[in-house]
Design a protein around this nucleic acid. Structure first.
Length: 977
RNA sequence: GGGCCAUUAGCUCAGUUGGUUAGAGCGCAGUCCUGAUAAGACUGAGGUCUGUGGUUCGAGCCCACAAUGGCCCA
């Protein structure tokens, strides 16, 4: 949901700025998740059952299942206002899409970038398949009981020739045999051992026992139980490197192939060698926490082992088949590895090579489907040699704008720096088939780059209409080997679905078979993509890698990388925890705009965010309903006054307040433009929010009387025009953010009024800031008024004097002469806002005036003064003081305003319409009746009273009595026909 | 085990190039204002800016280390 909102807002903005911003929907349809779901649906638990069931039928289910979610997906996309072309999506399982993927692979094949190699993967021997890391993560079990064994590897004395430490060891070992002591929890990997690893800088010890020497890490002597034996020599790990030892099981003796890593990542078959020796290497992952500080390396059965094998050009011995059974002619051949463990140990014990054996409990991964322990296991896999273009990947990344920026050289940059070749084949069924054919006879390979190329191959056969490039149909297609003429068969693998999605920029256009101009016409590279941060190794990488491999060019210029959404407690949402928030529920309750607004403004996109419904509710209250209130305020009065937008107002003089909000508006437009242009919708949204706050709480509030007054004068027209302008601009500014609300405003305020206007706000131009209307001084000045007013209200509040009660004057100290000048200019606003008659700016010149008002000026330098009965409020350099004394004249006016207030409340209680005229009746003591008479015009105007009648309210009038200060009053209102 | 990010009020978040007394919204307590009214204003309580060191005349901000949480990779 989050990514859809952020994916939407930028193209909407760009479109309004006049750019062509196509938005194509696309469906990723391949991949293991789809297969797993179908397996579950059919009650399968492994590849054997799929094969038995029939790949064609299985894939038919997969094809169908993809569209199971389509409707729901489309519905929510539409509801959230994610504006994309859902009618013409690209679909990764279409033949055309697949054909482009083939083309892409053929390009790489042609440059020698595709090769077959080994990769160590977690393998489930029962299901016969590798598991993705995600699946492995599902199946960890704690407290698994396993063997913990210490094995002795016999040192070959002749390898200790030479000088230095080796020579001294050679002398030392002259009387008894010497062994390296290594530790493992997987005895079945021991026949695959081809090296021992030490930590170069760690301290190792030679321990003497009755009939042998043992070498292990000094720090682990006690843990192994050798602390009471005599240490006869100590040395660094690096001194042990290169020493050779006898294999536990010479592979040639047991009928198992021995290969060796070559510099070019090939694993070349080695000749049998009865006097085979292995050697000690150093690596950086040797633990000094457990074991012996000497690690047994079996390159076929561990990822680090495999890497170490490659780096050190070690031997490679593989003696386990895909079912987890030991091959060759060992005493324990044919057994499942875990069952072979005890026999292997027996064998070693009988040869005196088992030092110690016990059981431990640790965490180990199991197959999440069938709970079989997983084996780390080297399998043949197809690779793309991305390392060959590593420099380009890094250079291309430097051209990309990342938001947030740290991803660029952080997570993504690091990932590129540590690039390894892309293992891109999968031994599965539902995916783009790998377009590589192998000759059954001579073993040569051929890569196919298009359907046409395939059909034109000599001896092409197996074709059935209609063409479906998926398995199993594609597996039927054969042709003759160009070398020996024998039939060629497609290799069984399909392609990693990340390759599909990474090929999207070209594959969605069926390039280069169609759209040949794709690279030149602006459709590639893309300006903008957006996904969550987990895609750094997913889509971000596959896009970048494929684009770099094919075109040596990055394929996106700007990318917003989103953080994940957590629940209210900061925990990841997961189905298992049951803390997933259903988007529909939130949308139905608060609306799509509320959710969008929350997502955009709540926190910067790159951060993780806690989500709860309350937050959306708050966003609604804080922003959407405030804006809506402003809008409905405008509509209410504009309807009463029959305001017609577009009225010529050039001749009218806008007030300071009008000029201020227009200045703020243009500043806002400029700010939002800059923020969106810089891919920062959050900043843009927050600016809009703050503007709407000012508009509502300052402009509209301060302008209310202008809308109320009954004459349709110029000032009123300016007010309407100004507010109208703000609302229109807001609707356009908000269109990318809250498309529905924006459209509602626009339809009612513009489209319904001007026939020549665009039909929709989303077809309108994004507003342009009129820099000439931005008045920085006015903006600062108005902030000053707000501040002084706020302090004044605080002083009133402290004195317990209502704002309704007028006061004689206010004394204000501000920060400097500049502000004093501003204050003088802004005097009318302050007088009105604070309901005071006069403003005294407390500067050096004001001494006389203050004294005239009865103040005692304590120090004109420090601008301190005193007077009994004042309330003052101060913060920083600012001080606002009001006299508490109220003259009879002011008291009367206060009372009049009080009456008005009560009458207004009564109008509302009586459910009169805003525009209804009324007759007002009043009764009370002489004083209060006099006040009403004195302020009759004022009261009439404010309450739309035709008459103020000094009588008891008649039957049917809405009447109430109040106590205003010390005086009782009875008021009645009745509506005029 | 490695990398990246985050940590500021009860909650969600601002905090500019290091520079007076660290802010907002929500929530809480109270007061006020009000024909925008399921709004709004003001006040109050609430902060050792995760911790420890360092750089500096001066650190929420820069550096190092650590803790906690999140993500990614082993």
């Amino acid at each position: 949901m989050l990514s859809r909102v952020f994916k939407d807002v930028i193209p909407r903005y760009k479109a309004m700025k006049g750019y062509y911003a196509p938005r194509q929907a696309g469906w990723d349809t391949h991949g293991l998740p789809v297969e797993l779901e179908v397996e579950q649906e059919l009650g399968f638990s492994g590849k054997a059952q799929i094969e038995e069931y029939g790949v064609d039928q299985f894939n038919a289910h997969c094809r169908e299942s993809v569209f199971g979610y389509l409707k729901e997906w489309e519905a929510i996309t539409e509801r959230i206002g994610f504006w994309i072309d859902l009618k013409h999506p690209y679909i990764t399982m279409d033949n055309n899409y697949i054909e482009t993927v083939w083309w892409a692979i053929k390009q790489m094949w042609g440059r020698g970038l595709v090769y077959q190699g080994y990769k160590v993967t977690p393998h489930c021997p029962r299901c016969g398949t590798s598991l993705s890391s995600h699946e492995v993560a599902l199946g960890y079990q704690d407290n698994v009981e396993d063997q913990s064994v210490y094995i002795k590897f016999k040192i070959v004395p002749s390898s200790l020739a030479g000088s230095g430490v080796h020579k001294r060891l050679s002398n030392l070992f002259s009387d008894k045999p010497a062994y390296f002591l290594a530790w493992t929890t997987t005895p079945w990997t021991l026949p695959g051992n081809t090296a021992l690893a030490v930590a170069a800088d760690a301290e190792y010890a030679v321990v003497e026992t009755d009939d042998e020497y043992l070498i292990l890490a000094d720090a682990l002597l006690e843990q192994v139980g050798l602390e009471n034996n005599k240490v006869v020599k100590r040395m660094k790990g690096k001194d042990l490197v290169g020493i050779e030892y006898e294999p536990l099981f010479n592979p040639h003796k047991y009928g198992v192939e021995r290969r060796r890593f070559q510099a070019n990542s090939e694993l070349a078959l080695q000749e049998p060698d009865k006097r085979l020796t292995y050697r000690v290497i150093d690596t950086d992952f040797v633990s000094m926490e457990e074991g012996t500080g000497i690690v047994h390396m079996a390159p076929a059965y561990g990822e680090v082992d495999f890497d170490a094998g490659q780096n050190n050009e070690l031997d490679f011995v593989h003696m386990v088949d895909l079912q987890g059974k030991i091959t060759g002619n060992y005493p324990f051949s044919g057994l499942f590895v875990k069952e072979a463990d005890p026999l292997i140990l027996d064998d070693l014990r009988s040869r005196g090579l088992l030092y110690r054996s016990e059981t431990i409990r640790h965490t180990y991964p199991f197959c999440w489907r069938c709970e079989t322990p997983l084996l780390y296991y080297a399998k043949q896999t197809w690779y793309i040699r991305t390392t060959a273009v590593k420099e380009s990947l890094v250079a291309g990344n430097n051209q990309i704008n990342w938001y947030p920026e740290h991803i660029k050289y952080g997570r993504f940059g690091d990932w590129l720096e540590n690039n390894v070749d892309w293992a891109f084949s999968r031994e599965r069924y539902w995916g783009t088939p790998l377009p590589i054919w192998r000759c059954e006879s001579c073993g040569s390979y051929d890569c196919i780059g298009s359907v046409k190329e395939l059909k034109n191959k000599p001896g092409f056969s197996g074709f059935k209409q209609p063409l479906d490039l998926h398995r199993p149909f594609v597996d039927e297609l054969t042709f003759d080997c160009s070398k020996c003429g024998a039939p060629m068969q497609r290799v069984p693998e399909v392609i990693d679905c990340w390759f599909d999605s990474g090929a999207m920029p070209v594959a969605q256009w069926h390039y280069p078979f169609d759209n040949e101009s794709l690279l030149e016409d602006g459709r590639f590279p893309a300006d903008y993509i957006c996904e969550a941060v987990d895609q750094t190794r997913g889509w971000f990488y596959s896009l970048h890698a494929i684009s770099t491999l094919l075109f040596n060019h990055p394929c996106f210029k700007n990318v917003i990388c989103l953080g994940h959404i957590l629940d209210a407690k900061g925990e990841k949402m997961s189905k298992a925890k049951g803390n997933v928030i259903e988007p529909w529920a939130v949308i139905n309750k608060y609306g799509a705009d509320a959710l969008r607004w929350y997502f955009i403004t709540a926190s910067p996109p790159g951060n993780v965010r806690r989500f709860s419904e309350d937050m959306v509710a708050e966003a609604t209250r804080r922003f959407l309903s405030t804006l809506w209130n402003v809008y409905s305020f405008f509509v209410t009065y504009a309807n009463i006054d029959h305001f017609t937008p577009g009225t010529e107002v050039v001749s009218l003089a806008p007030s300071e307040l009008d000029r201020w909000i227009i200045s703020e508006l243009n500043q806002l437009i400029a700010d939002v433009d800059v923020a969106l242009d810089g891919y920062n919708p959050t900043e843009a949204g927050r600016k809009i929010e703050s503007f709407v706050n000012d508009l509502s709480n300052w402009y509209v509030r301060r302008s209310r009387r202008r809308f109320w007054k009954s004459e349709n004068d110029a000032d009123k027209l300016v007010a309407y025009t100004t507010l109208y302008e703000c609302l229109i601009a807001l609707s356009k500014l908000l269109a990318p953010f809250t498309p529905f609300l924006a459209e509602e405003l626009y339809q009612n305020l513009v489209s319904g009024v001007f026939s020549e206007a665009p039909d929709s706000v989303h077809l309108a131009d994004f507003p342009m800031a009129d820099k000439a209307k931005i008045n920085k001084q006015l903006a600062t000045d108005t902030r000053l008024v707000m501040k002084v007013s706020s302090l004044g209200r605080a002083a009133r509040s402290q004195a317990g004097i209502k704002v309704r009660q007028p006061l004689a004057h206010v004394v204000v100290s501000v920060a400097g002469s500049k502000e004093e000048t501003s204050l003088e200019r802004l005097k009318p606003q302050i007088l009105e806002e604070l309901n005071v008659r006069d403003l005294i700016v407390n500067n050096f010149r004001a001494v006389a005036e203050l004294e005239r008002k009865g103040y005692e000026v304590v120090s004109s330098q420090e601008r301190t003064f005193a007077k009994k009965g004042i309330a003052q409020y101060t913060t920083g350099a600012y001080l606002v003081a009001i006299p508490k004394e109220i003259s009879p004249e002011l008291a009367e006016e206060g009372l009049a305003r009080e009456v008005v207030h009560r009458l207004q409340t009564m109008r509302r209680s009586a459910r009169f319409d805003i525009a209804d005229h009324i007759v007002t009746y009043y009764q009370g003591e002489a004083y209060i009746r006099q006040v009403v008479k004195d302020f009759a015009d004022y009261i009439k105007q404010e309450t739309l009273s035709r008459e103020l009648v000094d009588e008891v309210p008649p039957e049917g009038a809405f009447s109430e009595s109040y106590k205003l200060g010390d005086y009782d009053i009875l008021l009645g209102v009745s509506r005029l026909g």
